[in-house]
Amino acid sequence: MTTQASPPLAGCRLSVNALAEPLVRRLLDEAEALGIAYERDAAGVCIVDAGVATRGSVAAGVLVGEICMGGLGRVGLRADGSGGWPTWLDVASAQPVLACLGSQYAGWSLAASKEETGGKKFFSLGSGPARALAGKEPLFAELGYRDQSAAGVLVLEVDRVPPKIIVDKLLRDCGLTPEGLTVILTPTTSLAGTTQVVARVLEVALHKAHELGFALADIVDGAATAPLPAPSPDGVEAMGRTNDAILYGGRVQLSVKGSDGAARELARQLPSRNSRDYGRSFAEIFKEAGHDFYKIDGALFAPAEVWVSNIASGTTWHGGATDLPLLQRLWMKEAT
């Protein structure tokens, strides 16, 4: 691949939290219409329920997807049965590294024992703009980016309100007052939860490119699409469907600069079919791995099909392919 001369976001003055703030206000202003609810806890932190005790909606998930991208990405719902599935999510960003890795990526590990919570243990991976305020992940040193906003928003894929010890940690690590923090809860078993996870199709490609060692500074634009399944009431099945949507139905185009050799290798190595686990439902793979993500081949976490367009040469390289028949078998029954 290629080497990085300097952090890809060094000197970037964009604030993902400030850019997301108008979207957060819209989420709250349209809460009733979106089928969600919010309230402030005893300290003043805004907790948004986008599918725990509320119905939620696909529209809420689309908006949460844009919030996750720090206001630097567009997420749209498209009805197109010609592709083998009736609804698709389209995602695009002119700042894909910052939007996807500096904001959207679920990389902040948040855990508390049952002794610390006074009840059930808690675990979630935080995603969204507030990650860039805390900067707890080594990724931010690699990116050369930190945000300094006075308000922040974090998304948690959980089915209950985080305990006080976790909320206190968020406030402390982000340097926020309670009134400045918004936490959005999107269980994957909900409409909003399924939607906002599938909206990570471009982010999955960026993360895989990073894992492959491609120079992130050379990725200058990105667009992606993936089919949107119905959520499942079973947690493992719901997670499996969102992963399968990307692994077998995700299509991504990255615009890059640099050499044709590096672009070609990225197109060759990036697709999910390079994994030894490719070809089965993610739920099945996850169960066989004993519910341990680290036992699953990391090469699987990638979109199905990619195009890498080198703007320096005008050449586009293609790799991978979707498998919609597999998704249809997993998700659909004929009404006969």
Rank of each mutant, 00 (worst) to 15 (best):
T2H: 10
Q4W: 05
A5C: 00
S6R: 14
P7S: 06
A10M: 08
A10G: 02
C12E: 15
R13T: 15
L14N: 07
S15I: 11
S15N: 07
V16Q: 08
L23Q: 12
R26P: 06
E30L: 11
E32C: 09
I36Q: 10
I36Y: 10
T54Y: 04
A60V: 04
G61S: 08
L63V: 08
V64S: 04
G76M: 11
G81F: 08
G83K: 11
G83A: 14
G83M: 13
T87D: 13
W88T: 05
W88Q: 06
S93N: 02
A94Y: 01
A94P: 00
P96C: 04
V97F: 01
A99F: 03
A99H: 07
S103A: 14
W108A: 06
S109N: 13
L110E: 07
S113A: 10
K114V: 01
E115A: 15
E115D: 15
T117M: 05
G118M: 06
K121A: 15
L125G: 07
G128T: 03
P129Q: 01
R131A: 09
L133F: 07
A134W: 01
E137Q: 15
E137W: 02
P138V: 02
L139T: 08
E142D: 12
Y145L: 09
A151T: 15
A151D: 12
V153M: 08
V155A: 06
V158A: 10
V158M: 03
V161C: 12
P162W: 00
P162V: 01
I165R: 03
V167R: 14
L170F: 00
G175I: 02
I184Q: 02
T189W: 03
L191Y: 15
G193T: 04
V201L: 01
K208F: 11
A209G: 10
G213M: 04
D218A: 13
P229L: 09
A230S: 15
P231D: 06
S232G: 09
G235H: 11
E237A: 13
M239T: 15
G240T: 02
A245L: 03
I246F: 10
I246E: 02
Y248Q: 01
Y248V: 00
G250M: 09
G261I: 00
A262R: 09
A263P: 12
R264E: 15
L266R: 08
R268Q: 13
R273K: 11
N274C: 13
D277I: 00
R280T: 09
R280C: 11
S281K: 00
F282E: 07
A283N: 08
E284M: 08
I285N: 06
I285V: 13
K287Q: 15
E288Q: 15
E288P: 00
Y294I: 00
A299Q: 14
E305M: 08
E305P: 08
V306R: 05
N310D: 10
A312I: 00
S313F: 09
W317D: 07
L326N: 04
L326C: 05
Q328K: 12
Q328E: 12
Q328I: 05
W331T: 09
